[in-house]
Design a protein around this nucleic acid. Sequence first.
RNA 1: GGUCCCUUCGUCUAGCGGUUAGGAUAUCUGGUUUUCAUCCAGAAGAUCACGGGUUCGAAUCCCGUAGGGACCGCCA
Length: 442
Amino acid sequence: MTVTTRFAPSPTGLLHLGNIRTALINWLFARTNNGKFILRIDDTDTERSKDEYVSKIKYDLEWLGIDYDETFNQSSRFDVYKERFESLKDQGRIYPCYETPEELERKRKLQLAAGGKQVYDRSALKLSDQEKRGFESEGRKPHWRFLMKSESIKWNDILKGDIEIDLTSLSDPVLFREDGVPLYTFSSAVDDIDFNVTNVIRGDDHTSNTAVQIELINALDKNNLIFAHHALLKASSGDKLSKRDNVISIESFRDLNIEPLAILSLLATIGTSNSIELKDSIDQIINEFKIKTISTSPGRIETDLLNALNRKLIQNYDFDTVKDRLEKVDKKIDEKFWTAIRGNLNTVEEIKQWTDIVYDSKIIEPKDKEFISTAIDLMPEEPWDDDTWDQWTSAIKEKTNRKGKELFLPLREAFTGVSQGPEMKKLIQLIGRDKIIERVKL
RNA sequence: GGUCCCUUCGUCUAGCGGUUAGGAUAUCUGGUUUUCAUCCAGAAGAUCACGGGUUCGAAUCCCGUAGGGACCGCCA
């Protein structure tokens, strides 16, 4: 049996650090087991699902380098769900319910006030045929619940160990809505069976739900699924990660020019016992992946780590890697420019700051005009090379008796306008003699 | 209220009855003869949530308490 995992996002929002981690884990599990990874678009809720999000989800995955062997939309399988629905009905495992959402809400409040279980009371099970006809003649349409028979469900969770859930503490799940739309619990179980999914790896928020799904899968077929539930990530504030939380969406990081590998490196290490470090490649991440290193306790995700990883990554990029992107920033950026500047960048596109400094004619008025004037007098004629700066500053040192910070910092500020940046011996070669003279106002 | 889970340096974590409680990251110091970054060396940082029990011995096993998380929907 081929190991098969799936990622089943609902296209109702953007992918973020939390759900992309689940996708990555499933993908890595498939790749490390020579298996198959399926992208299942969970769009049975046609009202809330948007095509726009389907394409964004696919684009995010592609951008990150997470490929899939198969993809389909659940909305294309309504016929199959209907078929399975009939067979469950024949078995007497699903029953029609006529309560309105308001009535159910009222029941829950009553149960809460009474301090009892907030579980559906199965009163629809006791309805006589006549009562049912009564509701129908009122124009009510039934929604359908699955009758759970087991008292408890046990499974061995790859990450959490032996789990036993008391099914009587959970409501019989609604499988089909009043309008005939199948719900997640059902379509998910059917598709896992039909597509021969072997391993379901998902967030801890699905743990209780897994008990329900095992009961359902056993009614439909026979459960052979192996489950693993990982802890959810929390925001650095300690709050829960939200789909609506755009600051951690993959799209937002892409807009900030964060590299895919930085994101993958973070996701492959945070909340695990792996060292938090930049990985050389996605292949390295695959090679090092071990599902058991994933923690079961909810951890915080520090987005600062992402910036640090990104910085480290781009500082080693060759010119060829970023050539096309640099061209969009400024066509004048060549290999020499990139190599001189890259060590001081947080993102590739940040190089714009340095093309501004190198090519613009902004006038800089030095604080210590006398000193700078001396320096300019001693400035060597071109051509310049890597030794020029040393020779020049040695001459200035001799003449002015300045050294260290006193010597270098005013020069940097006078020639670039800022107090920090790439090595001056490289930078002056990029700026050039004429520009320095033109720029410095004495 | 019910069900399930979690709790070790700031943060992510290793630990499976005897460890100077280890690593990563962040922080600080020194060096790499300006800054930033990198790299190297070093330092500091954990009453192992709390209380009790078992044991010669507990971060580790058991019970309780507290705190945190998840779920309890005609969402996924």
